[in-house]
């Protein structure tokens, strides 16, 4: 059995939502907010919300799309915002740029609609993250599997999804270690291709474990 030189260290994470001082009642104000809000706010409404609403596997992708759909009643815009996949982005700046482009284009094409007042305002918030070592490390596949089984939703999300921003790579903590620690590139790729939009965190975890088990059977 392979043993990694550098162990995988599991972390636990907890988030607080910080309420910002910005809000938007029209699409024009919403666009202004997207330009001006903090990086932490873009992260919160796209990445973090995917964790707190992970059980919704149909039609919910981020807070911005949900507001355009449910409160601003702009279905076409909501679809475009929902189509943005956080896994395609290596930086918040790039994600913000695309969000602003989509909403900006909509406002230009629909100047009248951009000034209409939504049912509810959108409030820009931020995530404040506190991480702590989980007290578990893994050098072998078995230890790694055991660690994943014991993670909370938040910790699984931290390693599997939000790590992409930390690593600035199109991968996640698990795949990164499987490829670089254990030299299992194919398994790393398979784990990285699990669709977080059509899985809950529980079903994504079950898929990771199944892929690991299949690899162990091969060995």
């Amino acid at each position: 059995m392979n043993t990694a030189e550098t162990p995988f260290e599991f972390f636990t994470v907890s988030y607080l939502t910080r309420i910002g001082n910005q809000s938007a009642g029209t699409m024009t104000e919403f666009l202004r907010g997207l330009h001006q809000c903090s990086d932490a706010s873009i992260f919160h409404h796209t990445f973090q919300t995917l964790s707190s609403h992970h059980f919704l596997t149909e039609g919910f992708s981020n807070d911005f799309a949900q507001w355009a759909h449910a409160d601003a009643n702009r279905e076409d815009l909501a679809e475009q915002l929902a189509a943005l996949d956080v896994r395609d982005y290596l930086s918040i700046a790039a994600l913000r740029s695309d969000l602003c482009r989509v909403v900006g284009d909509y406002c230009t094409a629909n100047p009248g609609l951009s000034e209409q007042t939504a049912l509810e305002r959108f409030y820009f918030c931020e995530s404040l993250e506190v991480t702590l070592p989980f007290g578990l490390t893994a050098r072998t596949m078995e230890e790694f599997r055991n660690g994943i089984v014991h993670l909370s939703h938040a910790s699984f999300y931290f390693h599997f999804l939000s790590s992409r921003l930390r690593l600035q790579l199109q991968t996640n903590d698990f795949s990164h270690w499987l490829a670089n620690g254990l030299g299992l590139g194919t398994l790393a790729d398979s784990v990285n291709h699990i669709d977080i939009y059509t899985n809950t965190l529980d079903s994504a975890r079950a898929k990771v474990l199944r892929l690991i088990d299949r690899e162990r059977r091969k060995g």
């Binding site: 636990t12 907890s14 506190v130 702590l132 909370s152 939703h153 938040a154 910790s155 699984f156």
Partner: peptide, 15 residues
């Protein structure tokens, strides 16, 4: 809630 969630509470409580 699952063991993982409770383990996490214990970890946060430790410090």
């Amino acid at each position: 809630l699952g063991e993982g969630e409770i383990d996490e509470l214990r970890l946060l409580a430790k410090p």
